[in-house]
């Protein structure tokens, strides 16, 4: 069974038909990169996977999105539970104005975990998972804003991991970072995929090529092609994909 399965999904912002008949499937413990020019629908699609678009008025979805075989748009699905299972990391690091420790503990507390030992253990584990422990272990009580951009982004990933999701969505997670921080996040992705299924939106073709197992190319709200990353970047099936990745349009 696929971890994430999208069946004939159409999505509308009011009258605007943003996604057309998207069908794709992702296996567990893989990294899938979503690429395409601005406005092609890749971020819209990503946000559908944890029902973030529910928060926008006038949106409408047709079709099915299954995670672990369950339709996440079923009326019995609780969006809060879903978002616990499907974590999200955004383009710009967005730590809360709290301490490093509190940033990671926040999601746990919101979800009703009060046992201090459990919180502490989860915070430590999550910070270690994102390879930030050595850099922050002596200043956990200091403000998260004191960290560099790259450290803040890893902290945000740790915050997403603390609630123990099984899917991690990333919307251009390194676009605001320098090459060294970017490389650290990409190395981290390889570590994380052993535990999580990762979907990453990126405008950086090299990043998609370096860091993902599969790549899906979106154009004007349609999925043009999805295949192994190696195939997409060596011999894509569709001319539109070839033209986009070789920089001839888009």
């Amino acid at each position: 069974m696929h971890k994430i399965e999208t069946k004939n999904v159409n999505f509308f912002y009011g009258e605007n038909h943003a996604l057309h008949d998207i069908s794709l499937a992702m296996k567990a413990n893989t990294i899938t990169a979503l690429i395409g020019p601005s406005g092609c629908g890749k971020s819209t699609y990503l946000r559908l996977l944890n029902r973030m678009n529910d928060l926008i008025d006038g949106t409408r979805l047709e079709g099915e999105i299954l995670i672990d075989g369950e339709n996440i748009y079923d009326k019995n699905t609780n969006a809060y539970d879903l978002r616990k299972n499907v974590g999200m990391v955004f383009q710009k690091p967005n730590p809360f104005p709290k301490s490093i420790f509190e940033n990671v503990a926040y999601g746990l507390k919101v979800n009703g975990i009060t046992d201090k030992a459990v919180i502490e253990e989860r915070v430590h584990t999550s910070i270690q998972q994102v390879a930030l422990w050595d850099e922050v272990k002596d200043k956990l009580k200091k403000s998260a804003f004191e960290l560099s951009g790259g450290q803040q982004q890893r902290l945000c990933i740790a915050r997403a991991l603390a609630v123990q999701p099984s899917v991690l969505l990333m919307d251009e997670p390194t676009s605001a970072l320098d090459p060294i921080s970017t490389s650290k996040i990409e190395e981290l992705l390889f570590e994380l995929k052993n535990k999580y299924t990762i979907v990453i939106v990126t405008h950086n073709m090299q990043q998609a090529a370096r860091a993902s197992d599969n790549t899906a190319f979106f154009y004007m709200g349609r999925l043009i092609e999805m295949d192994k990353t190696k195939t997409i970047f060596t011999k894509p099936n569709q001319k539109q994909t070839e033209d986009y990745i070789t920089g001839r349009f888009g």
Binding site: Q206, A209, F233, T234, K235, P236, E242, I245, T246
Partner: peptide
Amino acid sequence: KQPVASDLR
């Protein structure tokens, strides 16, 4: 230029 696909080949 970091070529890919047909350019890389």
